[in-house]
């Protein structure tokens, strides 16, 4: 299993939430540990690698309690976005995850550049801008849902969630592309 494959698996674990009562099986911290081990097996000189490793380590520690705390009440309801400490903890984790992805993009772009994969580098750069900008907007606007009427918040929230979800999937697909490239390079 090459390193891109492990990053892909790790981030997929983070994206999937399967709960058995309070306890999350396939917990997020396992996913982040997988990402961390993949990053450690890679060359440390790629641009952004240091930051990525540090953030992955931070996340794999910070997400341990999450596996046992269950989902915030708001997510079960679907409609209400509560602002209890649990929700804020979840959102903060989301934000740190964004930092990790930010560094990962740098690593990927540098990797593609060094390997002379211009097409892949261009594609990564494009998704990088879209992904990070959309997520930054999402997190900046999210807290306004505390103070705006429901009728405004719910449609915006649904659209925002859909956009963010699509971008997550696009990112995973991109990692698959890197995984294939690496395999191809290794074979030759």
């Amino acid at each position: 299993m090459n390193s891109f494959h492990r990053i892909f698996g790790g981030l997929l674990l983070v994206l999937l939430d399967i709960h058995l009562g309070q306890i999350e099986i396939l917990a997020d911290f396992i996913g982040y540990l997988l990402v961390l081990s993949a990053l450690n097996s890679m060359d440390g000189n790629w641009k952004g690698m240091k930051g990525a490793r540090a953030t992955a380590l931070t996340l794999s520690v910070l997400t341990i309690p999450q596996a046992f705390l269950g989902q915030p009440a708001g997510t079960n309801e679907g409609v209400n976005i509560g602002f209890d400490p649990l929700t804020i903890y979840h959102q903060a984790l989301g934000l740190i995850k964004l930092v990790l992805i930010f560094y990962l993009f740098y690593v990927f772009m540098d990797w593609a550049k060094k390997k002379g994969e211009e097409e892949l580098e261009r594609r990564t750069h494009k998704l990088f801008r879209g992904y990070v900008t959309a997520h930054l907007f999402y997190y900046a606007l999210l807290p306004f849902s505390m103070n705006l009427p429901e009728s405004t918040v719910i449609p915006l929230f649904i659209v925002g969630l859909a956009v963010v979800m699509i971008l997550e999937i696009m990112f995973l697909i991109l990692i698959r592309a890197f995984h294939k490239e690496q395999n191809r390079i290794e074979i030759y």
Binding site: F83, L136, A140, P143, F144, M146
Partner: peptide
């Protein structure tokens, strides 16, 4: 996107959370 822009954006997000929580 440069690291600096990203950092400033994170700062704006923190302000947005703080301000909204305070208002709430």
């Amino acid at each position: 996107m440069k690291g600096k822009t990203f950092l400033i954006s994170l700062l704006i997000i923190a302000i947005s959370w703080g301000g909204n929580l305070w208002f709430y």
